[in-house]
């Protein structure tokens, strides 16, 4: 008999026990471990995803901040540049004004100096010219300077023509006050008489004349009436001298101050108007 029923029963029992043992010691622990591992992996994946999304968020935030920072920096830089530009402009203007003021002052000083010098030269030249003229006249013609001056003045009166003469005649005739004849020196009596005669002849009337001495009048004779004037003086010559001297000075000063001597170039007006 191949089948032993007791053994069949025992083996059935054994198999049932084995099923229980295997379940207890093999399947449950393994399945538990597998589940735990799967759960753990899922958790880790979820964590990783969460971290990734968080990192992404932080990166975005960081980029945003960076951009803002860049913009702020650019704005600040622009502002600073503008301010610096304005400050530079201001300082530049200030410096230019200061330089201009200094230049003007210096020019003024130069002008004043030149003027003073001119005056000094003028006076000196006058004295020299008079001295030379006197000496020359005395040596050559045996006449005094004053005498010649008077003659020249008289000749000028006589040579007057046209509107000038008419205007002066009108003025002399209508004027109640005597005409004023000023001279840089005392005119001798014969000179006075000669001038009086010349006036009378020239204007064909009795001209009343008052003689005056004015040392400041630069070496000449002038007739003034009612705002009109006839004169002879060496001012014209002095003026041309002054101009020459001025040009010399200008040449000398040019390297130092460029525009300074411009004022010196004004032409002296002839005074016989």
């Amino acid at each position: 008999m191949l089948i032993d029923w007791f053994t069949v029963g025992a083996q059935t029992l054994n198999f049932i026990i084995l099923v229980w043992l295997m379940k207890r010691f093999l399947y449950q622990p393994i399945l538990h471990a597998l589940d735990a591992r799967e759960k753990r992996i899922a958790t880790e994946l979820a964590n990783a995803e969460a971290k990734q999304s968080e990192a992404q968020k932080e990166r975005d935030e960081f980029q945003q901040k960076n951009k803002e920072l860049d913009q702020q920096r650019a704005a600040l830089l622009r502002q600073a540049t503008d301010e610096a530009q304005a400050e530079r402009q201001r300082l530049f203007d200030e410096a230019r004004q200061a330089a201009d003021a200094l230049g003007a002052k210096r020019q003024e000083t130069l002008k004043t100096d030149a003027h003073n010098q001119n005056q000094a030269i003028g006076l000196r030249a006058q004295q020299e010219v008079f001295a030379i003229a006197r000496k020359v006249l005395a040596d050559l013609a045996a006449t005094s300077l004053e005498e010649r001056m008077g003659e020249v003045f008289i000749r000028r009166l006589q040579e007057m023509k046209g509107e000038t003469k008419a205007g002066l005649a009108e003025a002399l005739k209508t004027k109640s006050d005597p005409a004023l004849v000023r001279s840089a020196f005392d005119l001798p009596a014969e000179q006075r008489a000669a001038i009086q005669n010349a006036l009378n002849e020239t204007f064909s009337a009795e001209i009343r004349v008052r003689f005056e001495t004015d040392p400041e009048l630069i070496s000449g004779i002038e007739l003034t009436t009612n705002g009109l004037k006839v004169a002879w003086s060496i001012v014209d010559y002095l003026a041309s001298l002054e101009q020459s001297v001025g040009e010399i000075l200008q040449e000398k000063d040019r390297p130092a101050v460029k525009a300074a001597p411009q004022a010196e170039e004004t032409q002296p007006e002839p005074e016989n108007q």
Partner: peptide, 9 residues
């Protein structure tokens, strides 16, 4: 290899 065992299974 025993028929008893295989019958039991």
């Amino acid at each position: 290899g025993s028929l008893s065992t295989t019958v039991a299974l």
